[in-house]
Design a protein around this nucleic acid. Structure first.
Lengths: 327, 327
DNA sequence: ACACCTTGTGAAAACGTTTTCAACGGCTAC
DNA sequence: GTAGCCGTTGAAAACGTTTTCACAAGGTGT
């Protein structure tokens, strides 16, 4: 029942070496190649990838470790990565850490045991610290988030500038008491927070900042608390799509109309941000480009392991909608 | 640099067999087990999964082939599957076919080459037909969609009943010209369509049906066309979350207010359906339960390969919101 | 005291490939 | 005509584990 390469070899009247070469790229005469292919079809042979990887010492697999598969930003990026990897005849192992350092460690270990060709990783700040001390047998490209400076190739958004753009936009519409609600687990959130502070300072406004776990439930709770306070902000800048969702929920729960009672601006131009009335103002990230660049950096690093570390910084674009209209 | 099991064995002063047993579940004395563990820590040994799988002829891996990773229904299911698999010490390979039969075939082949322990699969109708003729070396559990009758274990929603519930709900609110917009690639969409027809018939109403590719862009286009016609429906039932999004877009584009100008009901209680004013009426699927049941069926099939084929049918629940309020 | 399990251990085979190595045949170049 | 080279092929080694097999040591029931 189980058919191996020796069965194919027997059926084709050649040695296993020839079969291997005919299926791979070894030198084989055209006649034999066709014989082998016929034998493969006749026997229904499927190569055993474990054996192949063991012998060839090459997994042709890249690991993609993301923080939250429910975040459309990461699903979009993963699509780009998968497409690029596939056209280079590589598989992708997609891993979801849920922003949990323990799961990150577990998946990194798994990548080591799989002997992957390379890894694309969006780490939490917690593991970022430990990252400097570690050395992997495979190249690692950081995505969306930065690690220890100069240690890993990375592709990130120009987070500070993007967030400052949001502040500029709100200030231009006449808002002054602009609060910032930022995630607590990613370097990205920290950079956006810094950009927010910088933007506020430039406009002579006083920053008000709260931190929260980057998920909708936690964000809603924190936002609801905040918006119930007497001197609550009249506008809110938030650091990602999930937090934005929580903020919208909170506004709804408190019966605050957008933008009359509260202006709202955030990150990630997800489909629903257009649908939630009156439309949410966001920074759109070039998600496909981020995935493509990450793969490019990874492949180039595999090609030339010793080249200098590179950091690709991409720009977001402001998508202004009703949630920040002038009152 | 590269450390294998023989290095650990040497460091611990034992044979490789003992190391293997100490790391696995073979019988080893407590003293040696500790010695081995110390040696593992000292050498930084990481087992090579390819070698392990090759020799043990067990991949401890399950393949999860879904139709669209951007569909939150599938991401939710995949979370449940992953959690269950992980606690059984199994890995998951997550594959996204994008409703494309060619990609489905490719991933099925990959599963064969990986010699996976089992597969959970949401097939398109196209490959469903070919599925009857195929025999896999691993158990397959169908999810969300049915295959050839009696051939594979499966866990699905009671789609007909759920969709009829939607029709009942709309009829009870006084709607009569209720149209149906259904996906064209899944058995699920077909069942929902049948349930819609059945429901309409029961209420003495005339079904009006259009089919569309199950993505937001195609759905929006078709819905916009339809809603521009003179005798356009006053209510729409649609067969999944992405089509629902397209329908909302179309209504917005044509300036039709929900539910005044158009009532809307669909499937999948995704976060944004609550946020899109005035709230979208949907059937909520027990996503976690679906994933958990799929894993359970798979594991039980692995345990007892010859037991009769089973089909688990779960019920959805109606979440009534503003989009179907009485006018 | 003997036969008989049970438990723990190491040597070596096995898993299914790819790759190395040597060899063969047919060229070309002298 | 012979030496050298190139393209093609097969035999066998190698990849890093787990598993089989044999065996030694220790315990138990008679």
């Amino acid at each position: 029942m189980k058919v191996g390469i020796r069965d194919v070899a027997r059926a084709a009247g050649v040695s296993t070496a020839t079969v291997s070469r005919a299926l791979g790229q070894g030198p084989v005469s055209e006649a034999l190649r066709e014989q082998v292919e016929a034998a493969v079809r006749a026997t229904g042979y499927r190569p055993n990838l474990s054996a192949r990887r063991l012998r060839s010492q090459s997994a042709r697999t890249i690991g993609l470790i993301v923080a939250d598969i429910r975040n459309p930003f990461f699903t979009a990026v993963s699509r780009a990565v998968e497409d690029a990897a596939f056209s280079a005849d590589m598989r992708v192992i997609l891993c979801n850490t849920d922003e949990d350092p323990a799961r990150e460690a577990m998946y990194l270990r798994l990548m080591e045991e799989e002997r992957v060709t390379g890894v694309i990783f969006a780490p939490t700040v917690t593991t970022t610290k430990g990252l400097a001390a570690r050395a992997f047998d495979f190249p690692v490209v950081l995505i969306d988030r930065t690690g220890p400076p100069g240690a890993y190739d990375s592709v990130v958004l120009d987070n500070g500038a993007a967030c400052a753009t949001l502040v500029d936009h709100l200030a231009a519409q006449g808002y002054a008491r602009i609060g910032g609600l930022f995630g607590s687990t990613s370097s990205t959130a920290l950079e956006r927070r810094a950009g927010y502070e910088e933007g506020m300072r430039r406009h002579g406004l006083a920053p008000q900042i709260r931190s929260v776990a980057p998920n909708a439930a936690a964000a809603m709770e924190e936002a609801a608390l905040w918006l119930r306070e007497p001197d609550r902000p009249e506008a809110l800048v938030v650091s990602n799509g999930l937090i934005l969702m929580g903020a919208v929920r909170a506004a709804r729960a408190l019966n605050l109309a957008l933008p009359r009672d509260l202006a709202l601006a955030g990150f990630d131009n997800e489909p629903w941000t257009e649908l939630a009335e009156p439309g949410l103002t966001v920074i759109e990230q070039p998600v496909a480009e981020i995935g493509a660049q990450a793969i490019r950096l990874l492949f180039e690093r595999i090609e030339r392991p010793d080249q200098p570390v590179r950091k690709v910084v991409l720009s977001g674009s402001l998508v202004a909608r009703g949630s920040t209209r002038v009152r």
